[in-house]
Amino acid sequence: MLLELESACAAYGQSQVLWNVDMGVTQGDAVALIGRNGVGKTTLLNTIAGVQKLTGGRLRFGGDDLTSTPAHGRARAGIGFVPQGRHVFPHLSVMENLTVGLAALAGRKAVKESGIASHIFDLFPKLTQIRNRKAGLLSGGEQQQLAIGRALAGQPRLLLLDEPTEGIQPNVVQQIEAALRRIRTELGMTILIVEQYLDFAWSFAESYHVMQRGQIIRSGSTQTESADEISHLVNI
């Protein structure tokens, strides 16, 4: 297991949102996290990235216990994060946004910093054209590509993607999905993705977890089960 969560709990003030979540991601796999709005998917990803504190439980990554490691330490350990809503730095240019992603390489022995890897521009050719534009002025699709590129700049071992196609034009959605498939096949990236579209989740990931009210209520393989079996747990 590359990533292991053991009875993870998280809360906003007094209201607990995650209840003893156990979850793992195997090296090389893509895992889809699905569930209705407000069940705690984003909260779960945030606690893995370290943006939010675990109020209980443990987090192990690559064999190390990162439970009390701050966010920047987790990024440097190899957890790449593409947050929901993209969160690009609005007043930084595209290049500057990507360069911030290099911060994850600080103190890593296995990787050397040699600027923004060319495969990022290869995956997202659009970023080359708009490299000097302020990120806040980009379209949603461009921002999403930038957010993914920024996470890849840190050469992560695990990529966390929170609804990467939410609120994006259909034709751009396809481009992003195609790029995500290439990230899997060409870079061999391990991925944990929050995804609303079951069709894409099924064609992209090996396994799935369904969340409901802060708990994982069902897990399984996308290879042996059909999406129809769980669609009632996801759709309203």
Binding site: F81, L92, L102, A104, A106, A151, G154
Partner: peptide, 17 residues
Amino acid sequence: RAVNQDRPIAAALGVNA
């Protein structure tokens, strides 16, 4: 500048805020 614009995200990208 990154920390100034979005502290949690800068940290999640590896910046020691």
